[in-house]
Each structure stands twice: as structure tokens, then as C-alpha cells.
């Protein structure tokens, strides 16, 4: 993980290597590039990867289904819709305000998903993410239509496809909010595990089920919104990483969170590196690389022997 992060800071079009850094000193071109672009990019990759993977873990506990994450519950699409709304109605709003609006939309979208789920008691666990993907499809279609009418399709594209190539110093700091929230999630980890045991068990253990659900969804919505605002949607990450961790060490959230965070960050940094190297000096956006690798891993999780999807 640490090695990946170091490698990530030294890959790029411009020549930044430990050698060039030493040769040019702290005022050189390489050092300025490192501080303004490369280090922010690596930090934001690590923050986004870790927090989105944890968001997946939390959602899986709250919904009690291992195939949900922001991109299979309409959360990410709702955040993008919110971002579009604020771009049209209040384009001058500061980034943090935009993020707030996106978070409110993400929360509403996820709430809608839970309401739909409550209406149709789903017996098969793979149907739950299907319902979410359909809902996300509807929200996405509305968003695309509006974006088309106002000639914002290209902007929408940058939100829906996670891409870290535009990350510079001063343009990623919102992600520290996601970091704070993941620490909060770690503190509340046991509550999420208990809620994952079901409403009755949670009530029996003296936990206010609704309050934990609301708090968890708020964390999910804000983290999703910050990542969508700064870099764009990274699909499958919150699904693949927690499932792999669960296979090995189980679902105790407190025990799982550090592993999910490290693996999530490592996965994103590696995919970003891959996207930068495949057709160097051009880049493939991270969202696409993660989408392809993540989808393959997701299929493997579904099809593997003993998977509880059957």
C-alpha cells in the first residue's frame, strides 16, 4: 500500500523522479509539480478509496445485503442529480455548498431506495441491488435528460466517471471531510454490526435501530457526495472490497474497517496507476479502470462456489 502510494507520486507525463527532485532542489520544477499535483492526487486517491470502501461496508450492514453500495442503490446517481441541480440553479455556490446539496440528494435517493425495498419484500438477496440499480437508472435518466436540455452532458460525464487527473492542490481538500466521517464510522463500528444482525436483535440489545440507520445513511450520503464532487463516481469499489474482507475475517465491522480502508485505498491507487500506464502518456479515467476490474471481481464473487447469492 505504502509502496503503491510512493509509486503513484512518481508516475506522470512530466519527469518527476527521486533523482530529479534531488537535482533540482526544493524550488525546482519537479518539487513544485510534486506538491501541487502528484501528492494531492495520491492523497485524494487514498482518501476516496478508503472512505468509499467503508461506505460500502456500512451500507451492507444497514441494508443487511452484501451486494449494496452507492452505485447499486441510487445513491451516487442522486448525488449527481443534486450536483446538476445546484450547477443550474446556483452556479456561484462554493464547492462545499455544492457538496452539501449533493449529500442531501444522495440521502433522499437512498431513503427512496429503502422505502421501495420496504414496499416489496424481496426474498432473493440478489434482487435487492437490482431494485437499486433500476432506481439509479431512473434517476440517472432524469439527470441525463436535464443535462441534455441545458447542454451539460459533458459536465455530467465528469461526475459519473471517477477521474483523478484534474486533482490539484486546493481542489481535493473536501475529501478530508470523508476522512473525518470514516473515523466517526470506526468509532460507531459496533453499532453497525449490531444493526447488521437485524432490527429485533438491535432493539433487544438496547440500540435505537432508526437512529443508527439515520446516522449511517448520513455518513454514506456525505462521503458519496464529497467523492462525486471532487473526482466522480467510482463504481463497485464499496462492493468488492468489503466482500473480500468479509470472506477472510468476517463481518465484525470494528475488526473489518481497517482492512477495508487499506484494501480500498490500495485498490484505487493501483487502478489509477494502471490507468496512467496502459496508454502512457495518455490516461484512462479511474472510474473506467475500476469499473472493468471491479465488475470482473464482482462476477467472481457472485459465481464462486459457496457464495450466498444462490
Amino acid at each position: 500500500m505504502a509502496l503503491l502510494a510512493v509509486a503513484s507520486t512518481f508516475v506522470g507525463v512530466a519527469d518527476v523522479t527521486p533523482g530529479s527532485l534531488l537535482a533540482q532542489g526544493t524550488d525546482g520544477e519537479a518539487a513544485r509539480l510534486l506538491v501541487a499535483s502528484r501528492i494531492p492526487r495520491t492523497i485524494s486517491l487514498v482518501l476516496a478509496g478508503a472512505s468509499l470502501a467503508i461506505v460500502g461496508l456500512i451500507m451492507q450492514m444497514l441494508v443487511r445485503n452484501r451486494f449494496v453500495e452507492p452505485s447499486t442503490t441510487g445513491t451516487a446517481e442522486s448525488a449527481a442529480l443534486g450536483l446538476l441541480a445546484v450547477t443550474l440553479l446556483a452556479p456561484g455556490m462554493p464547492l462545499i455548498g455544492k457538496m452539501g446539496v449533493a449529500a442531501v440528494f444522495a440521502l433522499a435517493g437512498t431513503g427512496l431506495f429503502l422505502l421501495v425495498l420496504r414496499r416489496i419484500p424481496v426474498r432473493q438477496i440478489v434482487l435487492v441491488p437490482l431494485v437499486g440499480i433500476m432506481l439509479g437508472g431512473v434517476i440517472g435518466a432524469v439527470t441525463t435528460f436535464i443535462a441534455y436540455r441545458y447542454d451539460l452532458l459533458q459536465t455530467l460525464g465528469t461526475w459519473m466517471t471517477g477521474d483523478f487527473s484534474g486533482i490539484l492542490r486546493g481542489r481535493y481538500e473536501l475529501l478530508w471531510i470523508a476522512f473525518v466521517l470514516t473515523v466517526l464510522a470506526w468509532v460507531a463500528a459496533d453499532r453497525f454490526t449490531v444493526v447488521g444482525l437485524g432490527r429485533d436483535v438491535a432493539t433487544n440489545l438496547g440500540l435505537h435501530h432508526g437512529r443508527v440507520l439515520a446516522g449511517g445513511l448520513a455518513i454514506v450520503a456525505v462521503i458519496t457526495a464529497t467523492v462525486v464532487v471532487t473526482a466522480g463516481v467510482i463504481p463497485f469499489l464499496g462492493l468488492v472490497v468489503p466482500n473480500i474482507v468479509s470472506m477472510v475475517i468476517g463481518d465484525d465491522v470494528r475488526r473489518g474497517i481497517p482492512w477495508v480502508a487499506v484494501l480500498g485505498a490500495g485498490f484505487v491507487v493501483a487502478c489509477d496507476l494502471l490507468g496512467r500506464l496502459i496508454r502512457f502518456p495518455y490516461e484512462i479515467p479511474l472510474g473506467i479502470v475500476v469499473g472493468v476490474v471491479g465488475a470482473a471481481l464482482f462476477l467472481w464473487l457472485l459465481l464462486r462456489k459457496g457464495s450466498r447469492a444462490h
Binding site: 443487511r64 454490526t193 444482525l197 440489545l205 468476517g250 463481518d251
Partner: peptide, 16 residues
């Protein structure tokens, strides 16, 4: 149960 916990973990949550 969808959560994957060990027996000792589950019993431990009785102390919550």
C-alpha cells in the same frame, strides 16, 4: 443472518 460473525463475536454482542 446475513452477517458473518463467529460464535464468540455474536455472544460478545450480548454484552453490548
Amino acid at each position: 443472518l446475513t452477517a458473518r460473525l463467529t460464535v464468540r463475536d455474536l455472544v460478545g454482542f450480548g454484552r453490548f
